[in-house]
Structures are given as structure tokens and as C-alpha cells.
Design a protein around this nucleic acid. Sequence first.
DNA 1: TAGTGGTCTAGACCACCCT
DNA 2: GGGTGGTCTAGACCACTAC
Lengths: 233, 233
Amino acid sequence: MSEIDTNSWRGIHLELLRRINEREWPPGSAVPNEADLAAEFGCARTTVNRAMRELADAGLINRRRKAGTHVALHPTSRVVLDIPIIRLEVEQRDAQWRYGLLSQEILAAPARITSRLGLERGTPMLHISSVHFANSHPFLHEDRWINPTAVPGVETVDFATVNANEWLIQNAPYTSGDIAFSAMNADKALAELLEAPEGAAVFVVDRITWNKNEPVTAVRLSYAPGYRMHTRL
Amino acid sequence: MSEIDTNSWRGIHLELLRRINEREWPPGSAVPNEADLAAEFGCARTTVNRAMRELADAGLINRRRKAGTHVALHPTSRVVLDIPIIRLEVEQRDAQWRYGLLSQEILAAPARITSRLGLERGTPMLHISSVHFANSHPFLHEDRWINPTAVPGVETVDFATVNANEWLIQNAPYTSGDIAFSAMNADKALAELLEAPEGAAVFVVDRITWNKNEPVTAVRLSYAPGYRMHTRL
DNA sequence: TAGTGGTCTAGACCACCCT
DNA sequence: GGGTGGTCTAGACCACTAC
């Protein structure tokens, strides 16, 4: 009915979205095949395919050859989080970023790190502890372990002048990774670093990256209380 | 050199990824244009376009007409989170799911809700408080406000037998939304509900959805301590 | 203004997999 | 076996925007 519908890829995408949202095609029901839709819209099948692929990527429909396309029964919402460099994250909040190195040394890595990375227990690794500030207030604590084998030359970097977060992104590519978000009570040491009361709820990001099955780095970011990670659906 | 490289869309995607990862094309550098790459790979420009679009979606390259394609300077890692129905989330952990309704009543919504939804202060809304259990242990507390105007018939639903999380997904479509993750200390009431000590760090998801600019629901999910939200990079 | 990516087409072949 | 989605092609026009 609506004449606003151009026969562009985006137009078709919106129209299909509408039919799903308004239960014209209820959850679980079959969607016409690409050829039929192309005929209905008077466009090439490729165009319909593009629109449908977008819906499939968003988890709204399921597609299988021969079985056809069906509206998802439980449309799990798919959220995309952009995790920028910490400096940019601070600056995006219109705050001034500052960085302070607490320690940088080669240590035998504790078991909780080596086991998750699949390294020998006690493997020597570069440990870096630092704090990022926003307008002179602690923003987060960065606790990082780097596998020197995977990042040649890292031992010679002075992480007092360059922050590890940024240096690694520029110099240590990764092919896969693993990320987890959780909440923790700040222990005494962390509370002091974040200038927060002991026991305060802290938003924690744990992240591990590999480069072709070789572990690169494991990092824990502990955000100062009040931090919110936000995005659109 | 590697002969594994078919001239499929995926093959090209991998090859471009390799050139970026191995700094053959360093951060900030210009990438050849689609026509040239198509000539190099001996394929249609469309195929190159598909591969490049994938890289752009992942945030690894930036593309602008006329300016061309460049390797991203600060490859912000893009994380995709699938947020399923709570029942499924519990069952995926091989736990038995159970649900308990605490209260369901029409109330004048507090300002912190109405202001975020863009509703008049004191608008009557349906408030639902409930707990989801995993193996008889509290899994999360669901604190939800529903705009009855946007969801006709919601007043007549008995949310003791159907849980709001699932019912809404099936019956209240949304076109856009807003989601935030944070950490909070459990107050006394929440701590009791979650069978956790007062002050325990709790992982919190705040979520608001709209249907064509009409607010549908605002919900806060407070997970029992120890919860981790996990995904791959 | 001209180079570049964005998109559409009509046709084709194929992989997958339900029946 | 056959229907369906996945993908590739060669060509075309256009929108955007750096220059």
C-alpha cells in the first residue's frame, strides 16, 4: 500500500521487516522463496537475496537450502558492541585522557593465566599494570599479560610512554579472541587504584587474543564504578 | 603463493585479511580499488565488493567513494552478542529453568522510567517483578515496566503462568532499542532475592525498546553474582 | 569533474538437503 | 529428484565526494 517503497535493497528489507513485525508472517511461518519475492517486487533475485541475508544476519529469519526461509521462533536480539581503544573511549566522553604505568616486568605467569592461554605453567610473560584516567579521575585499571614469543620485540618497549592497549593493537595482530563481561567487588588494592570504596561493584572485561593458535595476550580491564557500556539494538 | 586460494568470495576475504594482518597493507594505507583487485584475482568486481564489504562491516577498513579504501588506523574490535530468551540462556547451561512472579500491578511509573521513555511523569504502566531460577538457584531478577498503550491486551495476561520476557518477544514487536551493561552493588532487597550477600557485585542489563517511536518496555535484568557474559571475537 | 564505491540486472551453475 | 538458497559474472548506471 505504501508507495514509499522503492525497489531498492533497503526498501525490500524494510518491507520484509514490516511483514515480520506486524505478524503478517508470524514467528515460525514460511517466507516465500526468493524467486517469488523477486517477481512480486519486480526486481532481480539478487536484490531480494541481499535483503534476506541482512535479516538472516540479524537473526530474524532462518534460511536453509531446500527447506526454505522461516521467521525465527525466538528472535534472539543480536547486539553489536564496538570496543575502541581506551584513549578514544575516554575522549569520546569529552574527557581528557591520561595514562599511568604502575609496573612492567617479566614474571612467571600465574596458573589462572597460563591455563586459559594453553601455555606451560610458569612460562615467563610480560606483565603490565596500568591505569587510564579521564579528567584526572581513574577510568579503568588495565592488568595485562603478554606472551613475548608471540610479540617479538615487546620486551624492549617502554610502556611508560606508550600504553600497552594501543601499542598492541598497532603491533600485535590477532586472528581470534575471546571476551567476557562480568561484575566484581573491588578488593582493597583495586579500590585504591580506582579511588573507590572497597567492595564497590566494578565492571570487568576479560579478553584473550590468539594469533593463529598462538596466544598473544590476556587482559583484564576493571572500570571505575559507574561505568556503563552502551549501544543500540 | 598459497594455492589454497580459490577465487570465491571467502577466499578473497581471507587473502585480504592476511595482507592486513601481516602488515603488507599497514594501518592507514590505501587499498587498491575494486576494479584493480578484481583484475588481480581474475574475478568480477561484485565478488571483490562482497569481500571488502565484509571487512568494512568488521571495522577493519574504511571505505569512501572517490577517496577509496583504507586500512583502519584503530581497528576497534567489533563484538557480536547474542541475547537469547532467558529460559534458553539457562537451559544452554544445562540447568533447569524455573520462573517465579513476585508482583504484577499497574502503577504510576517513577520518573527514572518515564523520563528515559519520553512519557509523561506518572503515566500508568504495568510493573512486573520476577525471578528466573537455574536449578532452583536464583539466576536473575527481572524488573520490568510495560507501556500498556503500546501493547494492547497486556493487562489481561497472567504473568504468573507466562513469563514477561518470553511473552513480550512473541507479542510486542519493536523496531529499535537501547541496551546498557553495568555493574552494581546489590541492595538489601535485591540481595535477598538473589540469595547473595548485601553489596555483592551484580551484572546489570538495562534495556529499552520502542516500536516506531512509541516506547514499549523498559527492563532491568540483575544477574546473580558470578554471571559472565561471554563471546568470541 | 572525474574517480570510486554502491547497487541493480539477467542469467547461470552449483551445493545442499528435504522428501 | 528436485526445490531452494548461495554465489559468480559481465555489464551498467548512479551517488558521493575529493580534488
